[in-house]
Design a protein around this nucleic acid. Structure first.
Length: 271
DNA sequence: AACGCGCCCTGTCCGC
DNA sequence: TGCGGACAGGGCGCGT
């Protein structure tokens, strides 16, 4: 999916476009995308609601309504698009919210790994508590990382992607952050020294910030709220570059599989 | 309790 | 050209 930078890009767009808009009609095309209740209840709960603000938590898009929240997770291939009359009709439409001003907020998702769910403020608070630290917040420090990883023998790359610990870092940015930090992705999380933890924290923040500046990475499917691609793909240093030369040392980059996901790294630069 | 794996689903690409 | 297998920004639930 969209990882933190892609979700943040969408959220910033929606925060500009949606506040004040009223949801007039709800069309659930794929019922399996709606979590927590039946489509009829979901539609009834949203009809007539007004969007107050749009924020991000982890890889979730939060639409704060005048009654409760609508939380959207894009999974691997989800898109949340603001469409005006006359815009191209979407393929793989999953859920359509018709706004009172004539626009539509359309959720599409080829693989349908994403989901939409309504929450009350209290329900969301409990869900929120189960999510880990925001990597762009002040709470994400080398000291915190050392303490949190102390007892974890899992590979640091897998550790970094676990949303109960650190949120927002997915398969692309985990490889990128570890490369920038010069840390071997196979190392047990508990084996990191203080300096390495500090480098990893800084590298993670840096790559996420840069990717936000470039409006995210379009690898295959990602699009922003207007349907545009992100521009960070060309800046990736290791992801999807197996066999190509390391931009630092020239050695061919490796691809391995960790937890069923591809990891890309330089066996010389990352120790 | 922590960890690894399989699964959800569709589309694309590659090798035979 | 056709077909099977691998793979694709995620996350959950299961077993051990």
């Amino acid at each position: 999916m969209p990882e933190l930078p892609e979700v943040e890009t969408i959220v910033r767009d929606l925060a500009r476009l949606l506040p004040g808009a009223e949801i007039q009609g709800v069309e659930v095309v794929h019922a399996d995308l709606v979590q927590g209740e039946e489509p009829a209840g979901f539609a009834a709960g949203l009809r007539g609601a007004r969007v107050r603000e749009v924020t991000r938590r982890a890889k979730n898009i939060l639409l704060h309504l005048d009654r409760g929240l609508l939380v959207v997770n894009l999974g691997m291939t989800g898109r949340l698009l603001v469409r005006s009359p006359g815009d191209d009709a979407p393929t793989h439409l999953g859920v359509r919210l018709r706004l009172a001003d004539g626009r539509e907020l359309d959720y599409h998702d080829v693989r349908r790994f994403g989901c939409l769910q309504r929450y009350t403020a209290d329900e969301w608070e409990r869900r929120d508590e189960a999510l880990g630290v925001e990597p762009l917040s002040d709470a994400f420090t080398a000291e915190w990382l050392l303490g949190a990883a102390k007892k974890s023998r899992v590979a640091v790359k897998t550790w970094l992607m676990d949303q109960r610990r650190v949120v927002g870092v997915g398969n692309i940015y985990a490889s990128e952050a570890l490369f920038r930090a010069r840390v071997d992705p196979r190392r047990p999380a508990s084996s990191l020294k203080k300096k390495e933890a500090a480098r990893l924290v800084e590298a993670t923040r840096e790559v996420l910030r840069e990717a936000i500046d470039f409006r995210g990475t379009t690898f295959l499917d990602y699009r922003d709220a207007s349907g545009e691609r992100g521009e960070f793909a060309g800046r990736l240093r290791v992801y999807d570059r197996a066999g190509e030369p390391c931009r630092t040392c020239g050695r061919p980059l490796e691809r391995i599989v960790q937890g069923g996901r591809s990891t890309f790294f330089c066996a010389r630069c990352q120790r």
